[in-house]
Write a protein that binds this DNA or RNA. Structure first.
Lengths: 206, 206
DNA sequence: AAAAGATACATACAGTCTGTATGCTTACCA
DNA sequence: TGGTAAGCATACAGACTGTATGTATCTTTT
């Protein structure tokens, strides 16, 4: 039983190895957390050696970074599908929020993006990822549009985005932990409605 | 130079050793994070041996747990001083929020309570600590009172508490990171005002 | 197409860390 | 005052991380 050495291009080898490592790492990081997952375990699950891992990634943290980026992009994609920029601002905001909470129910996402992510990579880096390839960008653009259209009151964009994002994050965590989604959707709706009402009030006065 | 062996009671020895360990651990966990801080480094800074550490704490995580509990209690104390339960509900809510954000500016608190805490101990445990000895209990009681008095609309208490808490947490993080506090206070005030307006509207209708 | 070089990977190793086991010293208590 | 338990020190086993070095496979150049 001689193993014929198949000829594969380098780019294909790289693609395959990285994919196996990312898949195995995601699985284990989700199941046991970043700290409790060792690189020997990861490479065993991926059927490669530690040499391959350290060839493709600077260190364990870089591997985790890649997993998080991939996951963040996946969430963003689901949101943009559910709340395209063609929607009216406030509708898009609500639809996007619901889509976000739903997307975050995919197994392990809350742990990767909301628990281990900020601790391992730092909140600043997590925010960067979330803004550039994740859901935070959509939220900020949505809020900006809603404020411009007068549907929401004019508030400091950065703080507004950060606080709403935090609320959505916590809601996603709770729902993924088994809480009733409607409870959280009710509160979020109440918050947004309250703000919208303020915007209308302001628009009528002058 | 003979070191006279001072006679100390066991409870005093324990108290002193635990205090030194907690202080040294807090300092290092804040400076380098939980994962990057080793027990050899901690005991060196505390001038004890690893034997002492493992005599008083089950493991490194238990030591971290004690640090977090201590920190959480300190924050709660500052809040209760600034927003005693004698205050009218909504005033207490605002004052408590401002006090929370200020209290969290104490060096390292955001890292301990908002970044490493949830990742190392798990969000469920962090919530338990925060509810029993921390600021979350104050917030929940405040919201409950405000809803009962009709100052805020009736919403699911658990979700309401969680989402507002998340917003306060993120505000504290941002402010501690150098953001302008007034931006965040503005948005939080807008959110609470919007909710309060809804409560008033409902109270007039029927 | 053969040599030279780069890329992908494998293996071995050094350093460090964690938790435990074991022994000694000091305080407590009957 | 002698036995017991608590506090602490030291030594050790196992595991993990990152690096260094060696080898095979692909790519480029001439």
């Amino acid at each position: 039983m001689q193993q014929e050495p198949i000829r594969r291009s380098n780019v294909e080898r790289t693609r395959a190895t990285r994919a196996r490592l990312l898949a195995a790492a995601r699985e284990l990081f989700v199941a046991k957390g970043y700290a409790e997952t060792g690189t020997p375990e990861i490479v065993a699950a991926a059927n490669v050696t530690r040499g391959a891992l350290y060839h493709h990634f600077a260190d364990k943290q870089a591997l985790f970074h890649a997993v998080v980026e991939q996951e963040s992009a996946a969430v963003a994609q689901e949101i943009e599908k559910a709340a395209p920029s063609s929607m009216p601002p406030v509708d898009a905001l609500i639809a996007g929020g619901v889509a976000f909470i739903r997307a975050m129910r995919a197994h392990g996402r809350t742990r990767l993006l909301l628990l281990d992510g900020p601790a391992v990579l730092g909140r600043a880096e997590l925010d960067r990822i979330d803004l550039e390839t994740g859901a935070l960008g959509s939220l900020r653009d949505g809020l900006s549009a809603a404020m411009a259209s007068g549907a929401l009151p004019s508030l400091p964009l950065g703080a507004f985005t950060a606080l709403l994002s935090a609320a959505f994050d916590r809601a996603a965590l709770a729902v993924d932990d088994g809480a009733d989604p409607t409870d959280y959707e009710t509160v979020i709706a109440a918050i947004i409605d309250g703000l919208a009402a303020q915007a209308h009030a302001k628009n009528v006065e002058p």
